[in-house]
């Protein structure tokens, strides 16, 4: 038979091992689900009863608030720390490095316990001139801070160290020529950073930051270390202690954590799409009424992919 341009009709290659494997896995899952559904220890009626309990949904909101507020603070602090680390100023560099060394080098649980004890350690602070008897005033700096905000600070200070490294990687991933082009146009350091470098680094910063948000959501369960007990995990534990049922309340907590994580993942998807513009396959150019009609340029030949690209080392091109 002579070859023509007609589409090829061929018998599909079979994958017997693959198929067998899928059947085995499916069987195991069905067995597990059937067993779990009928096992008394799970106490499913209690799960149903407490899933939409007012106290728990409120605790979920508190958890989400803790996550979002501490992440916002951590991102701002991380950006500042990253810029300090990359600056020419040796003082700022060392300060940033020491911050990272301490906050990345100790467990977050230990840090949170410390935050909880700050009020005890610094019961009173006297401001005056050292080595003299002159005293201006005495305050107790941590007595006024609500436990919720103390938890936000504790989580943010720890997370900022990780965000700093993520932001630094993102900034270094922007080719040096971008910074040079901006400076050659007379843009200031601030303008270069805010308009050229940071927007481009977002493409590299956002995927790992999404992971950090999700990881933060789960780290909030540790804030009992400083005595805060209104978030999801502490609340479900408290209820389970009242009604002597551990497992169903753990399932309730897990369902809520999964739900919030899923919502956050959707948000991350849209952010990635927004900051991939000009690089990832394109959206249509928007209509801009002040521009004359132009031929639409939508040949999608851009560099593909681009969310989770490895961070290339900074380029320096001189002769």
């Amino acid at each position: 038979m002579d070859p023509t341009t007609e589409p090829i009709k061929a018998v599909k290659l079979r994958h017997p091992v693959r198929t067998a494997f899928a059947v085995v896995i499916l069987l195991l899952v069905v067995l597990f689900v059937w067993d779990a559904a009928t096992r008394d220890a799970y106490q499913w009626p209690l799960v149903g009863q407490y899933l939409f309990d007012r106290r728990i949904s409120q605790a979920a909101v508190v958890t989400l608030a803790l996550t979002i507020l501490s992440m916002i603070l951590a991102i701002v602090m991380g950006l500042v720390l990253a810029v300090m680390r990359l600056s020419d100023n040796p003082v700022l560099k060392v300060v940033s490095w020491v911050y990272l060394w301490i906050f990345r080098g100790t467990p977050v649980y230990v840090q949170l316990v410390f935050w909880g004890l700050l009020g005890t350690i610094y019961r009173s602070v006297t401001v005056g001139i050292p080595f003299t008897s002159v005293e201006f005033f005495t305050i107790s700096p941590f007595s006024a801070i609500d436990l919720f905000w103390l938890a936000v600070l504790g989580l943010a200070f720890n997370e900022a160290a990780y965000m700093a490294e993520i932001v630094r990687g993102g900034i270094l991933s922007v080719p040096r020529g971008q910074d040079e082009a901006a400076r050659a146009l007379g843009m200031s350091w601030r303008q270069t950073m805010l308009r050229v470098v940071v927007p481009q680094s977002m493409r590299v910063i956002i995927p790992p930051t999404g992971n950090e948000v999700i990881s933060m959501l789960k780290t909030t369960s540790l804030v009992t270390a400083l005595g805060f007990s209104l978030e999801l995990y502490a609340r479900t534990r408290a209820i389970s202690a009242q009604i002597y049922a551990t497992v169903p309340l753990l399932i309730v907590a897990s369902i809520w954590y999964l739900l919030v994580t899923s919502i956050l993942m959707v948000g991350q998807h849209y952010l990635e799409k927004y900051y991939g513009r000009g690089v990832a396959p394109q959206r249509e150019p928007e209509d801009d009424p002040e521009l004359p009609e132009t031929e639409t340029a939508t040949e999608t030949t851009g560099i593909a992919g681009g969310n989770a690209e490895a961070v290339p080392p900074p380029k320096r091109e001189h002769q």
Binding site: Q178, A181, R183, A184, G186, V196
Partner: peptide
């Protein structure tokens, strides 16, 4: 620098802008 234009070997257009 604002009064001196520069054109680079690798163009260095800002990829996130039209």
């Amino acid at each position: 620098r604002a009064d001196i234009g520069m054109v680079f070997q690798s163009f260095n257009l800002f990829p996130h802008m039209t």
